[in-house]
Structure formats: C-alpha cells, structure tokens
C-alpha cells in the first residue's frame, strides 16, 4: 500500500490503509500524504469510545493517482479534548471541524470559525457524545409541552 510506504507505518484494513498517529505528528502525516498524491480530502469523522475514555478523529484521504484510501486516526482524551486545526491544508476541513466542535465539544486550535453550525442555542451536552441521551432529552423537552386547552363551546 502506497500510503503505508510513504509514512512508514500503519496496517491494511479491507483494502484501505489505516495509519494510527499521535496528536502532534498528524499534521505532518497529512501534509506529507497531500504532497504525495493524496490530494482529495474525503472527510473528517469522530468516534466516541466511551469505555476507553477517548475520542478518535479519523482523517480520510483519497488519492486519485494511486487509487487508494488512507485513514489517519488520532486518539484524544475525553476530558478537555483539543486538536490542531488543519484548514490551511484543505479548506473544507474548517466545516468538519465546526461540526465536530459542536457535536462532540472538541476544540480545534487555530480555527477561528468555530461558531454554531447546525444547532441554534444549544446549551446541553454536545449531542453526539455517548453520554448524551437523545431519547431522554426528547421526552424531557418535547413531551412536557402541554396541549392547547380549548374551551368547551367553540364560540369563535
């Protein structure tokens, strides 16, 4: 696999390269891959591993040259997670970081646009974290709203 050759570590996973990386070196790895043909940034996803008490950021990159997919995985602690922003390498990372900041509460240093993206006026736990219970929230908030009480005679 080309990506593993370029970086010098990682394993193959169902035909895709999976490269674990530390928080600091991720920037260099992504930059190196970008220079070596991995020009398309597919997406940035985040997984909440609550039992291990960590978040996993997965940077997906695709190379049209080598027809290969690389996943760079960075693990962060669950309390006060923060990561470097990489929006200078690929502009669309800015949007992904905005979403992950909102949905998981991860801070991205260097991204000046971490404003609310999908939600408005949200003050609870970030909703995609595993310890946020969507069902309970929906019951608490929406089921507690009373029905409209109408008077008996429809005298309108």
């Amino acid at each position: 696999m080309k990506a593993i050759e370029i970086i010098g570590k990682g394993e193959e996973m169902h035909g895709r390269a999976y490269i674990p990386s530390g928080r600091e070196e991720a920037g260099t790895i992504i930059k190196k891959l970008k220079e070596n043909g991995f020009a398309h940034f597919v997406m940035l996803s985040c997984v909440d591993w609550i039992d291990k008490n960590e978040f996993e950021l997965v940077y997906h990159m695709w190379s049209y040259e080598h027809k290969e997919h690389a996943m760079i995985s960075v693990r962060l602690p669950r309390d006060n997670p923060s990561m470097f922003s990489m929006h200078e390498l690929f502009p669309q990372i800015e949007t992904y970081e905005r979403e992950i900041h909102e949905m998981y509460g991860i801070d991205f240093e260097g991204n000046s646009r971490l404003t609310p993206f999908l939600l408005e006026g949200w003050h609870d736990t970030p909703p995609m974290r595993k310890d946020f219970d969507s069902k309970k929230f929906a019951e608490d908030v929406f089921d507690s709203i009373p029905e409209i009480k109408e008077e008996e005679d429809e005298g309108i």
Binding site: S45, D48, W49, P91, Q92, E94
Partner: peptide, 15 residues
C-alpha cells in the same frame, strides 16, 4: 458505534 455520512453537498454547499 458510529455511522458517519459524507454527503457531496458538504463541500459544494458550504465551502
């Protein structure tokens, strides 16, 4: 554990 969807409009529509 997690399903993440990459939609094409994510880049087209925003950035």
């Amino acid at each position: 554990v997690r399903i993440h969807v990459r939609g094409p409009s994510y880049t087209h529509g925003v950035n």
